[in-house]
Amino acid sequence: MEDSTRDAEGAQDADSAITELYAAHYAGLVRLAALLMRDESVAEEIVQDAFVALHRRWRRLKDPQKAAGYLRTSVVHGTRSMQRRRQVAKRHPQDLPPDEPSAEQTALTAEVGNAVVDALRELPARQREALVLRYYGGLSESEIASAMKISNGAVKSHASRGMAALRPVLESWRR
């Protein structure tokens, strides 16, 4: 019975931690996901998946301080796998499910973007991730490295290649 008591407490911890993390990070993470995706309609879903996954492994998380980083990493990973699935689906157009707007989609009314974001979405995924995490997320190189699960050096090179590709459109962009 001791175990179940401990488990129950753990679950309560997880629930209240999720609520706090939601208040602090949800909107930011949805925006991050929207910038990373070519199609922002699933941004909320990806972020919700990340929270659910965190809740599930809450007891195994050694350091609750790392929860925000874990969420960020899951979101980056979630956008990657969503885009992979989309690419597969594109190759099999007959398998495409009907495109029904979800409740979340209608909430995301305004189009995310401008010329810069459009150009960003044409970049290879790693370059886009490095740039978005740095210039939208305001993360340090090491934080980006851990979110993308790559080395600091790789972050640097993805970011600088991405930046070079965006240079022309940035020159002509006006706020």
Partner: peptide
């Protein structure tokens, strides 16, 4: 400029009310 462009775009995203 990149930072400003990203933040401007992000501001257009309003998460739905029922996420939690």
């Amino acid at each position: 400029k990149l930072q400003a462009a990203l933040h401007a775009a992000a501001q257009n995203v309003s998460p739905g009310p029922d996420g939690l």
